[in-house]
Each structure stands twice: as structure tokens, then as C-alpha cells.
Design a protein around this nucleic acid. Structure first.
Lengths: 120, 120
DNA sequence: GCGACGTGCAACCCTGGAGTTGCATCAATG
DNA sequence: CATTGATGCAACTCCAGGGTTGCACGTCGC
């Protein structure tokens, strides 16, 4: 069991933190739908100010979920699937780990119960 | 595209919110490792009070990541893989969706570039 | 029954972060 | 070159929620 898989430090951390906010998820939806967009145009579709969107995009960028590039006087953002995919795999592994642990617990419990019946 | 897959309302929501907190992830680790534990024993291993643990367990329970059952005077909690697994699948699907969208964007861009070369 | 242990409830503090506004700056366009 | 539109930075407000303490209530062991 690595430190990575237990405490969830590293990329997973920031991705989970970024995805926790509903406004940021909406932002990701918009970006995925449009392919590319600026903070100004994104803010037009959401009930928040442009500055709020800018901050959210900064968080998403730090998590590797989004990347921006300057084109003339505007900053265009696009979605980056890699970090999300990595986190999905991490979660799936964790879920599988829990499953196997629970299976083990259950098996041990049943064996103990059987032993109890035999002796008592 | 369903409303579920876009806004992430429903179970996914609460799961992401629950996993965003590092203390709650530690709690889940502990529970997965032990199979079963009470708030009191969990608090003994963490740098927070029992009450803090109780609140976190309530959040995890609301997200379906954990379930508790009363045994005598103590409340025993165990991990529930289903919600985590469902969220993992949701994320993987979303990542794949982004990937295909990006591929489409890229293809269209290349076709436009080719057309540009042909005409100009 | 009585003490001890574990839980549940309520009130309270305090920081982080989501959101806002205002302004300065830089690029496009006539 | 002046105007317009987009960005970036900074200061500020506000509240959700993570954490704490104190106490009352059940439950087990003697």
C-alpha cells in the first residue's frame, strides 16, 4: 500500500478539491461542450462574475483539468482529460480494494461462526 | 447528454463533496483497513476530536460511502464501495467524453486547415 | 444501584474560499 | 492616435463548514 493510494496526496488531491465545487463542474461542462472558451464568454452563461470564473479556472488549471493559451488579447481555455481519467482509475482501484477487504472480513466472520457452531 | 452526466447532481455530487476533505479520506482509509470501527477509536488515531469524526462520518454516510450500525452502546461504521465505484465510472465516462470531443475539434481544425491550403 | 464508558445534541469560534467591485494594462480597430 | 474590449491584480465582504467544548442520556460491568 503506497502513500499515494492511502492519503491521496499528489494530483488526486487537487482534482478532488477542484471537482468538489458545483460552479467549477459547470465550467468544465461548458468547456467540454464548446471545446474552447474565454473567461468572459463563460461568465456570460453563468450566474457569477468574470472574476469568479477566472479564479475557478486557476483552480482547475492547478489541478491539471484545464489549460489556457493566449491568443491576441484573449485567453482561451480548453479541457484536459488526463487528470480526470487518472483520478477515475485511482477511485476504481480504491473501490475494488474496499470490496476485497469486505469480502475477506465476511469470509473470516463466516468461518468464525462455523467454528462456533462446531464447538458449541 | 443527460442532466445527470452534465451538472453532476445526484449521488456523484455528495460523493465528490465528501472526498474533497483530507480528514474524511483518512477516515475512509482507516475504516477500509479495519473493516469496522467506532467514532471514538477512529478519533484516537487522528489529530481531531471525536465530535469532529462524528460529523465527518455523518457526511460520509449521507454520501453513501459509509454505513453505521448500533451494537450495544457503540456505533460501528464500515465502508461501502458502491457509491465510490459509481462515481469512478461516472468520471471515467466523462473523461472519455472529453477525449472524443477534443478529437472531433482537432479533426475539424485539420480539415479547415487543409481547405485553407487548397483555396489559398 | 452505581460508576464508567460511549454516544448524541447544542452552542460556539474561526479560518478558507467563493464572490464582488474597482482600477490599471494591453491589444485590436477605426 | 483614440476608443473599445479583454485581461490581470488587489482589496474587500460574507458565510459554509471544520473544529472545539460542555453536558445530558443510554448501556455495560460490578
Amino acid at each position: 500500500m503506497t502513500e499515494e493510494s492511502r492519503g491521496a496526496i499528489g494530483p488526486v488531491d487537487s482534482v478532488l478539491g477542484a471537482l468538489a465545487d458545483p460552479t467549477r463542474r459547470q465550467l468544465l461542462d461548458q468547456l467540454a461542450a464548446r471545446g474552447e472558451a474565454t473567461a468572459t464568454t463563460l461568465a456570460a452563461q453563468l450566474p457569477v462574475s468574470r472574476q469568479a470564473v477566472v479564479k475557478h479556472l486557476a483552480v482547475l488549471d492547478a489541478a491539471g483539468l484545464v489549460s489556457g493559451s493566449r491568443v491576441g488579447r484573449e485567453m482561451r481555455y480548453m479541457v484536459r482529460p488526463a487528470a480526470l481519467d487518472a483520478t477515475a482509475r485511482w477511485m476504481a482501484t480504491l473501490a475494488a480494494d474496499w470490496d476485497s477487504r469486505l469480502a475477506t472480513i465476511k469470509r473470516v466472520a463466516e468461518e468464525a461462526e462455523a467454528a462456533e457452531r462446531d464447538s458449541g
